[in-house]
Design a protein around this nucleic acid. Structure first.
Lengths: 245, 245
DNA sequence: CTTAATTACGAACAGTGTTCGCAATTAAGG
DNA sequence: CCTTAATTGCGAACACTGTTCGTAATTAAG
């Protein structure tokens, strides 16, 4: 790892004034990488693999990107472009909740995203546009700017955590390991030792019908309320500038 | 990646009846790995590096562990042993909050932990003991067992997300990349483009005094309440079996 | 004392990210 | 138009990585 912080990709211009025109583009490379990650998981995303997909030599990629981490940054920003950021009106909480819902969908569509969003910062144009949009939802809310940013960051973090929890409990037939049958087997064996008596009764009970979507909405709404975002009712009751203009 | 699910480490006994006694132990290996990760980050934890620390050949480690992933499982369970799970009494919410606080401390002490806890399941003895302890805090709470498990999992997930948010904003002098100065520089450059006007004002405001500990407690308390865990006041008001016996 | 299992490990294999040097290509300057 | 300087594409190589194999040494049981 020779290169510095991966966010520096965005500071270098995509290609110089003189010299031959590049045969590929950052976005094209990111697209190929995303495609591989979607189909075979993040572990399959190697430099040589991407090069093979776009039809070039491996070393050529380093003309577009200075390290693999920068490439990941590109991937994150590319799928962040899938948010539909229509300039909608409405109460802040509802707008943020909708944004979180979209985020959840995104992470389900690209299972590799959730873990990365928690580790990497990501400062690409699409990510910044997302931030800007989330801030616009909080426009007339009485909060210091940095607190707004912190709240938004925490919302996407909780979303990511929730999705990862979902995926850990899901069938996950083809995600590298052979299902989660071994996990269950390990559990019953552990329970049979006698320790973990409470665990024993907890897993013996039948799981109630579980509406993930509703639970998610509850978790997010709950967090936002606690963080100081007014409920829709509170919002409507307040005079907040020109609502219809 | 040849091996199956990493949780299978716990199903194999540590060593066989016949043959020479092993010169090392799983926990010793895990300890070495944790030491390396604490000092130089998770990326520095390689098989050969661990082998060098415990003074053995690289191939020897595969007598104790079938893959690197299993080794990570060992690492997680080892630091999970740092929880102090004293059989305390008290209202469920307070007990869970204290547990989450300890988790936060743990993740600060071992910066590599937070990301892993979100990805890996971890079913080692210490992890299970933690689960059992958390369940004991919810003993007299009216919730289906699986919902309790889900709530606990979500609590540690939120904790992990919170800590990772903390660390992303921290100085992080020595964590591989050279500080987060590039991130700031990238931000101001992006803001200067004119897009992101709301972002511009948000970061221009001075950050208010920020008590991370208090904020964390608020987030966790808020989540737990929303998930159905009674507040301390509600708990005291309820008749819940023998409180002093 | 033999037998069978188990350990430790050097060597090798396939794969990774990354660097180097060189030929080919292009835009600008005279 | 031709030179010059920059830039692109990329094969080859380097330093790693996780993992497997075969072999020699060690041990408990029969």
């Amino acid at each position: 790892m020779p290169a510095g912080n991966p966010v520096e990709v965005w500071r270098r211009s995509e290609h110089a004034a003189v010299g031959p025109k590049p045969e590929h583009s950052r976005d094209g490379i990111a697209a190929a990488a995303v495609q591989i990650a979607d189909q075979e998981g993040m572990a399959a995303v190697s430099i040589r693999r991407i090069a093979a997909v776009i039809g070039s030599g491996a070393a050529s990629l380093y003309r577009y990107v200075k390290s693999r981490d920068e490439l990941v940054e590109l991937m994150i920003d590319r799928v962040s472009g899938e948010y539909s950021l229509d300039a909608s009106e409405g109460p802040p909480l509802t707008r943020l909740l909708n944004l979180a819902r979209e985020g959840r969908g995104l992470m389900h569509r690209h299972p590799w995203l959730a873990p990365l969003l928690l580790t990497q910062p990501s400062m690409g144009p699409h990510s910044l546009a997302y931030l800007e949009h989330a801030l616009s939802a909080l426009k007339n809310v009485d909060m210091p700017g940095p607190v707004k940013l912190q709240t938004i960051a925490m919302m996407t973090a909780i979303t990511s955590a929730f999705v990862q929890n979902e995926m850990a409990a899901a069938p996950m037939e083809e995600t590298s390991d052979g299902g989660h049958a071994p996990r269950l087997q390990r559990l019953v064996e552990a329970v049979q030792t006698g320790r973990y008596s409470l665990l024993a009764v907890a897993i013996s009970e039948a799981p109630p019908q579980f509406d993930a979507e509703a639970t998610f909405a509850g978790v997010i709404t709950n967090y936002l309320s606690g963080a100081g975002v007014p409920s829709d009712a509170e919002w409507e009751a307040t005079a907040h500038d020109q609502p219809g203009l």
